[in-house]
């Protein structure tokens, strides 16, 4: 039994070892803790040390990334929360593990349903982060969050999210998903412009 194969293999590991120093020297100490350094470690021709030193450095998640869902609200002029959800129930129906519970609001005087959720729950111990709720929501009201740092020490107190915990402003949504948000806003504006044009045409 020879040792040629083993020596060859060790040569490859040695190459990897030397590369770590070589790349660090090339970057002159700017490889760690900088945006461009993290970008380099994600790029297709990355060499050398591959580790992203969480929590000091974080890998930026892509826009499509999905974790737990959240509900979007628009901020009104007076700072009130205008919840986009109309409690149509599509997300609750499409949810594969059935972890969404919605109580529809009812007008106390007439007894008729109002298009607003009175209660909204998501059990994150059941949620499988599949994103179907966000995909099929017709009102752009439920979206998938990017926040993954949600570990805690008590599940019974924290893990059924209610409206308070689920609601996040549209500005946050715009921040984590800029492209998608812009597309939806443009589509909405276009629709409104069309409506306004139709109305104007009617009046004249």
């Amino acid at each position: 039994m020879g040792i040629n194969g083993i020596v060859k293999g060790l040569g490859i590991t040695l190459k990897h070892f030397i590369e770590t120093y070589w790349v660090d020297i090339k970057y002159k100490g700017k490889r760690y803790g900088t945006e461009s350094g993290i970008e380099d470690r994600k790029s297709f021709d990355t060499k050398g040390i591959f580790t992203v030193q969480y929590p000091e450095e974080k890998i930026k998640v892509p826009e499509a990334f999905r974790y737990i869902p959240f509900l979007v609200y628009d901020e009104g002029e007076l700072g009130e929360k205008e919840i986009r959800c109309t409690s149509c129930g599509i997300c609750a129906k499409v949810c594969p593990p059935q972890c969404i519970w919605i109580t529809r609001s009812v007008n106390p005087e007439t007894g008729k349903p109002v298009p607003k959720p009175a209660k909204f729950f998501i059990d994150v111990d059941i949620c499988m982060n599949c994103g179907l709720c966000a995909e099929f929501c017709p009102f752009e009201a439920i979206r998938m969050d990017h926040d993954y740092e949600i570990a805690n020490i008590d599940r019974f107190a924290h893990h059924i999210y209610d409206l308070d915990k689920l609601l996040k402003p549209a500005s946050y949504y715009a921040e984590i998903r800029p492209t998608q948000f812009k597309e939806e806003e443009d589509a909405r504006k276009e629709k409104e412009a069309k409506k306004a044009a139709a109305r104007a045409a009617k009046q004249t």
Partner: peptide
Amino acid sequence: PFSSRWPEGVA
């Protein structure tokens, strides 16, 4: 979908 989830769903 289970009927207990909507419209009167409580987790």
